[in-house]
Design a protein around this nucleic acid. Structure first.
Length: 500
DNA sequence: ATAGGGTTAG
């Protein structure tokens, strides 16, 4: 078995903890034809060495999948599994595999590895491998450059990608639409429209025809930098040269929505439908967001109706966007309705959304006292289901409970939040103290004060005043004096004096 | 023949 060590200039050798630790024979196989799925994974095939005693999988934490096509002994490693490994071992792992093949790799094998690594979001390793490419007397080909452009774009570094592109063209390779569109999109995404158009000109110069995807990227870029009118003009031009698709319409609609012109977005939707284009969930979600941001969240109900009518299933984003919008503008009951529909459709709200909903209900219940039961039930259901309850949610729930005169529940929840490590604000504390005192529960109120000391928080004058007032009312003069004294010790002088 | 474009909250 050939045990090829990395050459001295190997870009891989520095990754290796020690040379040739592997007890597995590894080879690269061009499985391109065998993989038909988009995420077919790293095209690396591992074969355990039959001559060696250990035939366990390469790394204990790695789930190595059997490839039915390649036979029993041959196993493949997928990016997902690579990613599951700790960072350091991940690199070792890949490097060990490649190490065995250095010297016999063809450029197209190398490209396969690079591509798989780009897919697996291992850009740093890609750069490392690429930088050492010539050490193995491998010449980058057109596809290599294409992958590198893509890699830099993925790293949100279109300028570097552009340099690779220039180098590629210098070598006489002509990039195609997909590559140039990737680069244009990358520039657009960071708002560098000038550079995007510069690439667009390159396209023109080399006789590469832009397609609808190219135009859509530019359109989105223009909207992103706020040049809505120009984007709209571009869209009119697109219509003259290429068939716009639903992406075009969605991009333009999003542009309008983001500047508070949702009605125009809706008009565009109608136009798209008239053209026979089928709007999808993203198209509708754009509208939910637009109307929500504009302060007309109820318009979302119309959108929801339309989307169902068009046989488009609302997804998590649809509901959460709509729900957030409704809550933002105080349409809490409508929000509750949407929440129920969402649950009914098997979509589970996450912690943030639940917190938001409960806060909305609490806020509303302070004006509509009947709602407090609904709010509190939802709050308790959250706890039972194990949702993380945020500080502000506790605070509002406690406030709502105080307002509704559910003093005991307010007290219990205050203790609960402290137990969870939250430090309640003075206002929350005083609200509970006040509510407890009003209910004559002065001992509990005093306990709240003690709780604050434990959390090294100095109560405000208000806290002491409330207590002293109630103790006076109950003619517990001695206790009132004690509280007064406790205040003075902490440098607080209450307004209320113990009654003599 | 591999690759390229879209939406939410906080």
């Amino acid at each position: 078995m050939p045990m090829s060590l990395p050459s001295p200039c190997s870009p891989l050798s520095e990754f290796l903890p020690s040379p040739s630790l592997s007890n597995h024979a590894v080879f690269l196989n061009n499985t391109r034809k065998l993989s038909c799925h988009k995420f077919s994974g790293l095209k690396l095939v591992f074969i355990p060495a039959a001559s060696l005693p250990t035939t366990k999988s390469y790394h204990p934490e790695t789930t190595v999948l059997q490839s039915p096509i390649l036979g029993k002994k041959e196993q493949r490693l997928y990016p997902k599994e690579v990613k599951a490994l700790p960072c350091k071992e991940r690199v070792d792992h890949i490097v060990r595999v490649l190490d065995k093949e250095i010297g016999v790799l063809s450029i197209s094998d190398f490209n396969d590895v690079l591509m798989a690594l780009v897919t697996a979001n291992e850009s740093d390793l890609v750069l490392k491998l690429y930088s050492g490419l010539t050490c193995y007397s491998l010449e980058p080909n057109s596809w290599t450059f294409t992958i590198m452009v893509r890699c830099h774009c993925k790293k949100k570094d279109p300028s570097e990608a552009k340099r690779v592109l220039d180098q590629m063209m210098l070598k006489g390779f002509n990039p195609n639409v997909a590559t140039l569109t990737t680069l244009i999109n990358s520039f657009c995404k960071i708002g560098q429209l000038q550079n995007a158009f510069q690439v667009f000109e390159v396209m023109d110069r080399i006789g590469c025809k832009p397609n609808i995807q190219t135009y859509n990227c530019l359109l989105k870029g223009m909207c992103y930098v706020g040049r809505i009118e120009e984007a709209f003009e571009l869209m009119e031009d697109i219509k003259k040269t290429v068939e716009p698709d639903i992406y075009t319409y969605t991009a333009m609609m999003d542009g309008f929505c983001k500047v508070g012109r949702s009605d125009e977005a809706m008009e565009l939707l109608n136009e798209a439908m008239e053209m026979g284009l089928a709007p999808n969930v993203v198209t509708f979600n754009t509208l939910f967001d637009g109307y929500a941001k504009e302060g007309r969240p109820l318009k979302g109900f119309g959108v929801l109706k339309l989307m169902k009518q068009k046989k488009c299933m609302p997804d998590y984003i649809s509901y959460s966007t709509l729900l957030h919008g409704l809550l933002l503008w105080g349409k809490v009951l409508a929000g509750l309705r949407i929440f129920k529909e969402m649950e009914g459709n098997g979509l589970e709200a996450d912690d943030k959304l639940m917190n938001s909903l409960v806060r909305g209900l609490c806020r509303k219940s302070m004006k509509e006292i009947d709602l407090v039961e609904v709010a509190y039930q939802m709050f308790e259901k959250m706890k039972k289901r194990g949702f993380v309850i945020e500080h502000s949610t506790y605070a509002l729930a406690i406030q709502a409970l105080c307002v509704a005169n559910k003093v005991d529940d307010a007290f219990i929840n205050l203790l609960q939040m402290v137990r969870l490590g939250y430090i309640p604000r003075l206002i929350a504390i005083n609200n509970v103290i006040r509510a407890l005192c009003l209910g004559g529960k002065v001992d509990e109120a005093f306990y709240v004060l003690v709780l604050m000391y434990e959390n090294s928080k100095i109560p405000s004058r208000m806290s002491y005043d409330l207590l002293i007032h109630e103790l006076n009312r109950q003619e517990r003069t001695l206790s009132a004096c004690n509280v007064y004294g406790a205040a003075l010790v902490r440098g607080v002088v209450p307004h209320k004096k113990p009654r003599r």
